[in-house]
Structure formats: structure tokens, C-alpha cells
Design a protein around this nucleic acid. Structure first.
Length: 805
RNA sequence: GCGGGUAUGGCGGAAUUGGCAGACGCGCCGGAUUUAGGAUCCGGUAUCUCCGAUGUGCAGGUUCAAGUCCUGUUACCCGCACCA
């Protein structure tokens, strides 16, 4: 009898051996076929690893290990996205430098990851807080700045009252801070912005060429929010040109009023020019809406409010009709032109507003009942009351009116995006310093590239300030510097970059992590990029994933990288929930600690369980009891040693099952269906025990296909049984398609679609024979007695169905 | 409100093209072994009025045949949310 499998000793032994031999280091040989597997590098929080992390890491570890056995030069790296607020807050609270906190957290995370036996290439570990790393983050920022894609702007931003920091639009969820859940208010501040909107079109279009799961593509498309419509120029009664954006230019004849966002510049202008007769009322409304948070402003089912601008009206270019102008906060200054033409008969919001204010409606598309609700259907309606558009379909009318507007010089087709520019500065300490200085004479001036990295200075206090200044602002020695351009006195930018900066290019650094001359060498980038398979969380779809695609496209444009897209394939894992089906959290008390699982059951069991838990893409609740099944399976696999016999070929009775299992496991790994791959291996193992033996050829194959899932146990058995070398030296087993088919199959015989008998027949039996044999069956014959056969059919390899009355 | 997804035993979940629903695992029941507990091994396990019928959220439909396709509907989850 083999001794019990001592996972603690054996797993440690192999982990040390892998580290010692560097067997998982990507090879520097650029002639080999390559495969780049990537998982999102973690933020090394003080809490340590969450059981959710290994779900993603194990899935791609399986891919990486299999690809290596298939002969690929695999890059499967790991690193640390280590800038960020929790570290800074912990540092403030405990009076420890964030660098120390980061170092300790990284050490803990690394030890935890290594205890799970992932085949990461640790020689390429990167850390975003390392000056030799953020040197290149700063370098990329400088290129953005030099190319006009970074600009500073005074604007209303999202301000987290607890983090005391600006948030990107993407970081505000339901009006509260994505990170801490505190209230987010609007604050006017001068901010660094990145022109992601300049790439909106390409970010949408290029999705088509990528192998991303559909829900990721869809979410990015919706977030970018492209719409095609027209800009139409109205005229004010005092001669100003008022441009509005609409996706329904066909309804132009139905415009009965116009609405401006309260912040629209014409309001200010007309007040100055003394054209408005109700200035007090207008001012009051402007102030009231300015006080509201974004959240209040966007609350659903809110009654429409607004104020008419008395003294000025707009003139419709298509029929010279004079229509009133209102300001209302349902029109946003940040989208389109900040002004709309209102067509209450055919737009729900305009309909509500018109009803609240008793404004007239003109039906211009027939087909609905505008007394009851706005008729917004574009597909079925016919134009009415619309001059030269009358009688056309909506689609034709759109084309015709746009042509007309263009000819008349009163408008043109226009594409708009919901995506807004990226608010890039943060008023915090623990981030990359922005390498710019402000000179009274020269304005914003970039540091010389030779000055990079611009290191974070030591500060006395990391406390954020209530006035919205970065803690760095207090470091006058650091702030006061000289202008690289004119040599005069200048001040450094004291805001830092958001956490998304370092993660927008880390996958490039892995290709060549120790390069001093460039973010990575051209040769390494040409060989390794794009990433072949990237797995990560859905929560990053409109954050990290979108930001890094934007940065990558920019780098492509300036010739730094060889591809327009960073990631060829993107998948996303479901969350692991607590045992009660709720999200794991400290406050719910349902957190599972991965260290305990590894300690009690071993890394291989943990890996196997995380893959067996369910559909990889879906959320799955943790179940402590089920882990036992995985442990049992591995113990039984270990026990195969006791029933091992000689044999260099699969035994005939197992031949077909062996080939089928290889096929199933191979296909399922590629399709990210580890759960059914494991089920197939369990079935095979059960078969070995049922037969009471396994021969060498069979066991070798079994260990090879199990290896990516349970690398420690399989290596140990391979070694103990002296199969030669290590599993990592072997080739992934192949299967013979012909042998995956059975000679004899069982088919079902149905009468009127109900199963009445089963029959074993040759796999290649002809339909007529199958039906004939079916009818000879006693039971079938009895059932058919006295009935008329209406129809007989044979589905190859499946069933015979006889329809009879 | 808009967009997307999900719904299958006591539980987690299987089921390429419509073709034996419930693979695999957990749990449970029975047995063996064991001083005992645990572990292990063997057998069983959708439901019911049990030689037959019924069963994949609910109601219809198409088909020889529906978890799978179509129409309607409910519940839950995720994303967006006055984007003109």
C-alpha cells in the first residue's frame, strides 16, 4: 500500500523545485511558438488573498500548463498593482510608510500565491510602485501630454467626501464612491483630463475584431454610447445661432419648444446683454440645479422642472416657427450641444415636460396616441404634418431632412458619444507623481525624460486635506523647482495619477521587465504581444479594460507597440459567493480564507474545487462540504499506485474511454469548462477502480491530463513511479478521433415519442435495418399490434421513433 | 425606464446540431470494516396514486420529438440610467 498522500510536505517540495529550476520561466527564444496568458494583477490589500483570486489564476494556470505541454513558449506572469487608497489609509492610521505597508502586503500575497502552486514566471514580477516601473508610467503620460491628449480643465468633478479625492465617472456607482460607498458631491476643481473621447470611435469599431466574450463587448459599447443623428442650427430672435443635437431630425416639424441645460453659455450671454426679462427667476433655477448632486439630478421619475427664458425665442429653420426656450436640468451640458429641440409628441421626456408646462404638441409621425403618451417607434410610423417629409417613413425622412439641412447650410449629420474624457488627477499621496511643472512664463512644461522617474518625496503627513489639495502640496521644497524650459521659478504638479495608470500598460512590462532603455524592447513586444488570453473581472470592463485599450491605441499611434489592440481574447470569471449565496464580506461574516483551505486540504484540492464549483463565467456559492469530493478524488488518484500493472498500450476495454477522455479534457480546457473536464476524469478514475487495475500507459495519460489541475500530486506520482523525467518535460497526450466512437451503440425505441424499449445495434446501422430490428422487439410488436403506422424515423446513433394510431 | 443574463432533484451543477433530462460531485439511506468516532469500501437515491404516469419558473404554440425553437408572462441577478 502506498502511504497516505502527505500534501503538506509534497506540495512544498515541488513548489521549491519549480522555483529552483525556473521551469516556468518564459524562454528568451523568439523563434518558438508563443502563448501569452494573463490574469489581472492584484491589488495587494492588507486582507490578503480572497478565494475569488485563485478562481481566475487557476483557470489560466491550467491553460498555461497545458500550452507548455503542447510545446508553446508560455508567458504567464504576475505582479502587483500596488498604488492605491487602502494602503495609504492604513499607513495614515498606523503611522507606517505606505512603501513598508506595500512591501509587507506583497510578501504576504506572494507567499499565498506560491502556496497554490501557480506556474507564474516570478522572474518577471512587476510592481507599479517601483520607481523603475513608474518611470515608464510617467513616460507614457508625458507622451500623452506632448501629443495634446492630456489637458488641464476647471470643471465640476465627482468628489468623494470620505476619500477626499476626485473620482473618474467610471468610479461613481449610484451616486456613491465605488470604493468606500460614501457620498459623492460635485466640486469645481482644476483637473488633468485625458482625451479618451478622441478614441471613442476606434474603441467601439475595433471591438468587432476581438475575441472578447459578448457581454464585455456589449458593456463597452453601451458605455461608449455611440449615436448617430444630426446637428440642427436654429436662430434666436436676436440673431444668435443655436445648435442642437438630435437623433430624430425627421421630427423637426414637431419641435414646439427648445430646452437648454441651466449652464448653457447663451443664458449668461443673454443676461449680460439684458435680453431676459425674468433674470431673477432664471438665476434662482440655475443655483438650485447647481446645488444638486449628480445623483439627485438623475433620480428617476423625478418631476420635470424648468424656467422659460422670457424675452428670447428660437426660430425653427424648417418652417420659421417661433418657439419658446426653457432651461431645465433634464438637459445635460456635457452631452451633445447642451441644448435640445423638444418634440413632445415623439419623445417621452419632452412629453412629460410639455404636459407639466401646458405646451403644445404637434404629431408628425402617425401611429400612436399622443394624448396618452409619446410615440417613439421609428420602425412603423409614417410622417404627417411635415411639409416635404409628409408621407415618408421615419428612416427615409431622416435621410431626406439631413440632406436638406446640409444643402441649406443649416445642419449636418453628427455622431455623438456618451463617453466623457477621463478625469486623471487624484489629490492623494500614494500614486505616481505627474511629471509636469507650472511656470508663470511658459505654462505647463513637461520634465525632461532624463529626469524620470520623478520620485515621490518623503512627506510628514499623508493625510488628505479638506481643501482638496494633495498632501504633496505641503512639501514646498519639492514643489518649488525650476522650469525645464526657461530656467525660471516653477511649481510641480502636486496631484498624482489614479490607480488605473500603472495597470494600463503592465502587460507590456512583463515582456521585458528589467529594461532601462524603454518600457520594453521592440523585439520582446513584437514577439509577445498581443496578449493571447486575458481573464479578469467584469467590474473592470468600463474601467481598466477600456482605459488600457485607449492607452494601447495611443502607444500604437506613436509607434511604441506593434498592435492596435492589447488583448486578443478576454474572458471573465463569475464571483465566488459566501455559503449563504451572498457576496463574501467581512460584515456578512461569510468570508472563506484560502490559507485555511490549503492548510486543511492542500493546494491541489483547493485548485480542483475552485474549478469544479460550477460554470466559470457564473457566480457560484462556496460549499465547504463539496470540497471533500475533490479531496477524495485526488486521494483515489494517488491510490492508483496500488493497482498499477504493466502495459505499454491502453487495454482494449479502455481504449475508447481513454481517447474520449483525452478529447473531452482537451476541448473543455480550451473552452474554459474545467468543471466538466474534471467530471470526465472522475468517470475515468471510477472505471479504473471498477476494473480493479490501471496499466502504465493508462496511468501516464491520466496523470498528464490531470497535471494542469493538480500539478503537485501528478508530479509526485510521476516521480515515485519512475516514469522518467518530470511531467513538465512531457507532451500533452493526443487522441484518435476514430477511437472516440463506439462500434456498438444503444439506441432508444420510441412509440409516439415515448420510450418503450432500448436496443444495442452496430453504430453504422442503416435506417431501414434499425427500424426493422425495432419492430421485432417483443414489447414494441405488442404495442404496435392493431395500430396503423403513420410514420417511422431513425435518428442516426440516437433513436427510432414510430408514430402509430 | 433601457440593455443583458439566469430559472433544471435535498444542494452545486451536467445535457455540440431539437433526439434516453438529472453526467460528475455533495448530502442522504442501507450494508461492510472499525473498540468507538472519523476515514475507507460496496449498493441505492427526481416525484407520485410505482408493472404505469408525471417532471427543467409559469401559460400557450411549433414538431414524430422541446430544458433546448417561437409568443406571452413572473421572479431574481448584473450593467446603464433624463445621453435628446
Amino acid at each position: 500500500m502506498a502511504k497516505n498522500y502527505d500534501f503538506k510536505t509534497i506540495e512544498k517540495k515541488w513548489q521549491e523545485k519549480w522555483e529552483e529550476t525556473g521551469v516556468f520561466h518564459a524562454k528568451q527564444d523568439f523563434t518558438l511558438p508563443k502563448y501569452y496568458c494573463l490574469v489581472e494583477f492584484p491589488y495587494p490589500s492588507g486582507q490578503g488573498l480572497h478565494v475569488g483570486h485563485p478562481r481566475s489564476y487557476t483557470a489560466l494556470d491550467i491553460i498555461a500548463r497545458k500550452k507548455r505541454l503542447e510545446g508553446y513558449n508560455v508567458l504567464y506572469p504576475m505582479g502587483w498593482d500596488a498604488f492605491g487608497l487602502p494602503t495609504e489609509n492604513y499607513a495614515i492610521k498606523n503611522h507606517i510608510h505606505p512603501e513598508i505597508v506595500t512591501r509587507d502586503n506583497v510578501a504576504h500575497f506572494k507567499q499565498q500565491l506560491q502556496s497554490l502552486g501557480f506556474s507564474f514566471d516570478w522572474s518577471r514580477e512587476v510592481n507599479t510602485t517601483d520607481p523603475s516601473y513608474y518611470k515608464w508610467t510617467q513616460w507614457i503620460f508625458l507622451q500623452l501630454f506632448k501629443n495634446g491628449l492630456a489637458y488641464k480643465k476647471e470643471m465640476a468633478v465627482n468628489w468623494c467626501t470620505s476619500c477626499k479625492c476626485v473620482l473618474a465617472n467610471e468610479e461613481v456607482v449610484n451616486g456613491v464612491c465605488e470604493r468606500c460607498g460614501s457620498e459623492v458631491i460635485r466640486k469645481v476643481k482644476s483637473q488633468w483630463m485625458l482625451k479618451i473621447t478622441e478614441y471613442a470611435q476606434r474603441l467601439v469599431d475595433d471591438l468587432d475584431s476581438l475575441n472578447f466574450i459578448e457581454r464585455v463587448k456589449l458593456q463597452q459599447r453601451n458605455w461608449i454610447g455611440r449615436s448617430t443623428g444630426a446637428e440642427v442650427d436654429f436662430t434666436s430672435t436676436c440673431g444668435d445661432k443655436i445648435t442642437v443635437y438630435t437623433t430624430r431630425p425627421d421630427t423637426l416639424f414637431g419641435a414646439t419648444y427648445m430646452v437648454f441645460a441651466p449652464e448653457h453659455p447663451y443664458v449668461e450671454q443673454w443676461i449680460k446683454e439684458g435680453r431676459l426679462t425674468n433674470v431673477d427667476e432664471v438665476r434662482a433655477y440655475q443655483e438650485a440645479s447647481a446645488r444638486k448632486s449628480d445623483f439627485e439630478r438623475s433620480e428617476v421619475n423625478k418631476d420635470k422642472t424648468g424656467v422659460r427664458l422670457q424675452g428670447v425665442a428660437a426660430i425653427n429653420p424648417v418652417n420659421d416657427a417661433e418657439i419658446p426656450i426653457f432651461i431645465s436640468d433634464y438637459v445635460l451640458i456635457s452631452y451633445g450641444t447642451g441644448a435640445i429641440m423638444a418634440v413632445p409628441a415623439h419623445d417621452t421626456r419632452d412629453w412629460e415636460f410639455a404636459n407639466a408646462f401646458g405646451l403644445p404638441m404637434i404629431e408628425v409621425v402617425q401611429g400612436g396616441d399622443i394624448e396618452k403618451e409619446a410615440f417613439t417607434d421609428c420602425a412603423t410610423g409614417v410622417m404627417v404634418n411635415s411639409g416635404f417629409l409628409t408621407g415618408l417613413s421615419v428612416e427615409d425622412a431622416k435621410v431626406k431632412i439631413t440632406e436638406w439641412l446640409t444643402e441649406q447650410g443649416k445642419g449636418h449629420q453628427k455622431v455623438n458619444f456618451k463617453l466623457r474624457d477621463w478625469v486623471f488627477s487624484r489629490q492623494r499621496y500614494w500614486g505616481e507623481p505627474i511629471p509636469l511643472v507650472y511656470c508663470e512664463k511658459c505654462g505647463w512644461v513637461p520634465l525632461e525624460e532624463s529626469e524620470l522617474p520623478l520620485r515621490l518625496p518623503e512627506v510628514d503627513s499623508y493625510e488628505p486635506t479638506d481643501d482638496g489639495e494633495s498632501p504633496l502640496a505641503k512639501m514646498t521644497d519639492w514643489v518649488n523647482t525650476t522650469c525645464p524650459h526657461c530656467g525660471g521659478p516653477a511649481k510641480r504638479e502636486t496631484d498624482t495619477m489614479p490607480q488605473w495608470a500603472g495597470s494600463s500598460w503592465y502587460f507590456l512590462r512583463y515582456c521585458d521587465p528589467h529594461n532601462d532603455e524603454a518600457l520594453a524592447s521592440k523585439e520582446a513586444l513584437a514577439y509577445w504581444t498581443p496578449v493571447d488570453w486575458y481573464n479578469g473581472g467584469m467590474e473592470h470592463t468600463t474601467l481598466h479594460l477600456l482605459y488600457s485599450r485607449f492607452w494601447h491605441k495611443f502607444r500604437y499611434d506613436i509607434g511604441v507597440v506593434p498592435t492596435a489592440e492589447p488583448y486578443q481574447k478576454r474572458t471573465s470569471h463569475g464571483m465566488i459567493l459566501g455559503e449563504n449565496g451572498e457576496k463574501m464580506s467581512k460584515s456578512r461574516g461569510n468570508v472563506v480564507n484560502p490559507d485555511e483551505i490549503v492548510n486543511d486540504y492542500g493546494a491541489d484540492t483547493m485548485r480542483l474545487y475552485e474549478m469544479f464549483i460550477g460554470d466559470f463565467e457564473k457566480a457560484a456559492p462556496w460549499n465547504s462540504a463539496s470540497i471533500k469530493g475533490c479531496k477524495r478524488f485526488l486521494d483515489r488518484a494517488w491510490g492508483l499506485q496500488d493497482i498499477l500493472t504493466d502495459g505499454d498500450a491502453y487495454r482494449p476495454e479502455l481504449d475508447s474511454l481513454m481517447h474520449k477522455t483525452i478529447k473531452k479534457v482537451t476541448g473543455d480546457i480550451d473552452a474554459l469548462k474545467a468543471n466538466t473536464a474534471i467530471a470526465a476524469m472522475m468517470t475515468l478514475l471510477n472505471k479504473f477502480y471498477e476494473l480493479g487495475s490501471v496499466n502504465k500507459a493508462e496511468l501516464k495519460t491520466f496523470l498528464l491530463i490531470l497535471n494542469p489541475f493538480a500539478p503537485h500530486l501528478t508530479e509526485e506520482m510521476w516521480s515515485v513511479l519512475a516514469f522518467g523525467g518530470t511531467v513538465t518535460d512531457q507532451k500533452w497526450p493526443t487522441y484518435d478521433e476514430a477511437k472516440c466512437k463506439d462500434d456498438e451503440i444503444e439506441i432508444v425505441i420510441q412509440i409516439n415519442g415515448k420510450i418503450r424499449a432500448k436496443l444495442t445495434v452496430a453504430a453504422d446501422i442503416e435506417a431501414a435495418d434499425a427500424i426493422a430490428q425495432a419492430k421485432q422487439n417483443e414489447r414494441i410488436a405488442a404495442e404496435l399490434d392493431g395500430k396503423n403506422i403513420i410514420k417511422e424515423l431513425y435518428v442516426k446513433g440516437k433513436l427510432v421513433n414510430i408514430v402509430a394510431k
